[in-house]
């Protein structure tokens, strides 16, 4: 199989973005145009005059990937060049859930034929691990640090898939770097579904989360096994498929693998906080029937 995303980039060992880009292109195939907003992926893959992309690729700004994708799709249609070419945006959680949300909302509402892949590593990693609206409850980041009177980020993750589904998207799915085949097949399905489709990929960041570079996949799998990251598909607003997890692992098994949660195991009151996170997982398990 032709490598559409090649090695030699400047990503960290065990980099989630590199894996996500590779899996996305394995699902989308060669006949696609990729848009990347500003972020680690853009910086590490295109230091001029080098590139890791064997598909046409464009980076414009931080907050406009979905708008750029809209323009590409409109131009291909206008010029009679659309054919089977897929337009795929690949953005981080900050670019997707925070600064780029308005452009994404516009593009999905307008119904452009494109796929948006959010690579969610749960903080602004490119600028040094600052909190985003994807940062989970009680995670310590550089702008939501643990302190004498704080357990870190005090808000739950924004429910981005639900927001996209509310736009009437025909296909919304969550996936995880722990399950490459799941991601590749969901991206394939998303890109083959006409209209604006969305993939939300849970993506552990070795640097930002604080774990050994060999553990990216293992940690991603553990998030799924605890119920903290449910894998599901939604078609036209309805959940149509869920990955069952059987007997759920306790959230401690996931939290203790990462230094961003280590205060939960050393600080007074940590057990109560872990119980709150377990409640988030339990709610997911119940809601999605995991």
């Amino acid at each position: 199989m032709k490598q559409l995303f090649v090695s030699g980039h400047r990503g960290c060992a065990g980099c989630c973005d590199a894996m996500a880009a590779k899996f996305t292109l394995m699902g989308a195939g060669e006949d696609c145009i990729v848009v990347s907003p500003t972020g680690c992926l853009e910086v590490m893959t295109t230091p001029f005059p080098e590139t890791s992309w064997n598909v046409p690729w464009i980076h414009s700004l931080f907050e406009n990937a979905a708008a750029v994708a809209s323009g590409i799709e409109a131009a291909l249609i206008a010029m009679g060049k659309k054919g089977n070419t897929r337009v795929v945006a690949i953005g981080g959680d900050g670019a997707t859930m925070d600064i780029g949300l308005q452009a994404i909302s516009g593009a999905f509402e307008r119904g452009h034929d494109f796929t948006y892949v959010c690579v969610d590593n749960e903080a602004y990693m490119n600028t040094g691990v600052q909190r985003s609206s994807g940062t989970p409850f009680d995670a310590s980041t550089t702008t939501s640090p643990v302190g004498k009177v704080s357990f870190g980020n005090q808000r739950p993750k924004k429910n981005m898939p639900a927001i996209i589904a509310a736009h009437g998207s025909p296909y919304v799915a969550t996936t995880s770097l722990g399950y490459a085949k799941d991601m590749i097949s969901k991206v394939k399905k998303a890109t083959e579904t006409p209209g604006p489709t969305y993939i939300h990929c849970h993506a552990p960041c070795t640097t930002g989360w604080g774990f050994d570079t060999s553990k990216t996949v293992e940690i991603a799998q553990m998030a799924v096994k605890t119920g903290l990251w449910p894998l599901f598909e939604m078609e036209n607003g309805e959940v149509t498929k869920v990955r069952k997890i059987g007997k759920a692992a306790p959230v401690e098994d996931y939290l203790k693998m990462q230094s961003r949660f280590k205060h939960l195991f050393s600080k007074e009151g940590g057990a109560e906080e872990i119980a709150k996170i377990q409640a988030i997982a339990d709610k997911n398990i119940e809601y999605y029937g995991l």
Partner: peptide, 18 residues
């Protein structure tokens, strides 16, 4: 949905040759 996206969309379209 905004002027920001108005011009951003044209970044994409112009890059395709439109």
């Amino acid at each position: 949905e905004s002027e920001f996206s108005a011009l951003s969309a044209l970044v994409g379209s112009s890059a395709v040759g439109a």
